[in-house]
């Protein structure tokens, strides 16, 4: 509004000077107000982050001890339990998920970037991947349940791995595609010009050139599913004891945090905080690493 008024001062030569000044003042006040609001909002948003991290450190660190990393949980009332089995279980489930999800994701990304660039088919696949990315994680849990738990009549780490793998595919596919798109086309042409078959060019030239970025993307996808709880509720289910059998219910760190958090026992609350701290440190470490790699420039030196 103020913009339109002031942009045509010539049309109203009789407009008094004080009016002009008021308008100018209002415009500049609005400007400062918006700037102020933007700054305040940023502070408001960063507050919960600081609060969450602060509480995690405060409550988590005081509850962490060696037993946390070496012992399975103890029955209620007995002190000294840990989450060692949950950490191991998480590792097993996440390992399976990565093994299944990352190759498929990279393959789909390669297809999008190297075989379907600029095509309608590619756009449809890309779109589907983006939409799949937004499907709630608990739905993946139901699907893995229907696929693997219901027919077998028992919960299993495998079902949890499959649910998480499905979640990794679209993320890995999209990052792979974006990283491959950054590989300069002349580099591909150089390989074709040498009579190197396309499959070999994709593997040894395109993927290799883009590999830092793709690894980054895989780690982000990994970090994202590492904290997932909902898809594990009725697949991996949880286990109070040591188990590495992916065909049986298996413990997982986020699951254990959830169970302990909603329990009525203080000792378990304490362990939940410790578990959350460990989970966050793991995730933050990978995100930070990713950030460092990304800042360094993934493809420096590409002609």
């Amino acid at each position: 509004m103020s913009m339109q008024q002031s942009s045509q001062p010539g049309s109203a030569p009789v407009r008094s000077q004080s009016l002009e000044r008021m308008i100018r003042l209002r415009r500049s006040a609005t400007n400062h107000l918006v700037t102020g609001v933007a700054i305040v909002s940023t502070i408001v948003v960063l507050t919960p982050l600081v609060a969450i991290l602060g509480y995690l450190l405060l409550k988590g660190a005081s509850s962490l001890n060696l037993a946390f990393f070496t012992r399975p949980p103890m029955p209620v009332g007995m002190p000294g339990g840990g989450m060692a089995n949950a950490i191991a279980g998480s590792a097993a489930v996440l390992g399976l998920a990565s093994l299944l999800g990352i190759p498929v994701g990279i393959g789909a990304g390669v297809y999008l970037a190297e075989y379907a660039r600029g095509t309608r088919r590619g756009a449809i696949v890309r779109f589907t991947a983006d939409v799949l990315n937004g499907v709630p994680s608990i739905v993946m849990g139901i699907v893995a349940y229907a696929l693997l738990v219901a027919p077998e009549h028992h919960f299993s780490g495998m079902a949890g791995g499959v649910a998480l793998a499905i979640m990794m595919v679209p993320t890995v596919a999209r990052t792979t595609e974006e990283m491959l798109a950054l590989v300069p086309n002349p580099v591909r042409e150089a390989a074709f010009g040498l009579g190197i078959p396309k499959w070999r060019t994709v593997l040894s030239v395109s993927l290799r050139t883009a590999s830092p970025g793709i690894i980054t993307g895989c780690m982000l996808a990994f970090a994202r599913v590492a904290g997932e709880t909902a898809p594990l509720l009725f697949t991996a289910f949880g286990n109070q004891f040591w188990s590495f059998d992916l065909n049986q219910p298996i413990a997982a760190l986020p699951l254990q945090i959830f169970v302990y958090a909603v329990s009525p026992y203080d000792e378990w609350h304490r362990l939940a905080w410790a578990g959350a701290l460990v989970l966050m440190v793991m995730i933050m470490a990978s995100v930070t690493l990713v950030r460092i790699f990304a800042d360094r420039g993934v493809l420096k030196g590409g002609s």
Binding site: P184, P186, V187, E189, A190, A191, G193, V205, R208, T209, S211, L299, G301, G302, S303
Partner: peptide, 10 residues
């Protein structure tokens, strides 16, 4: 080619 295009990661 017109512009030098060595394989950057090799």
């Amino acid at each position: 080619f017109q512009r030098p295009n060595p394989f950057p990661t090799m």
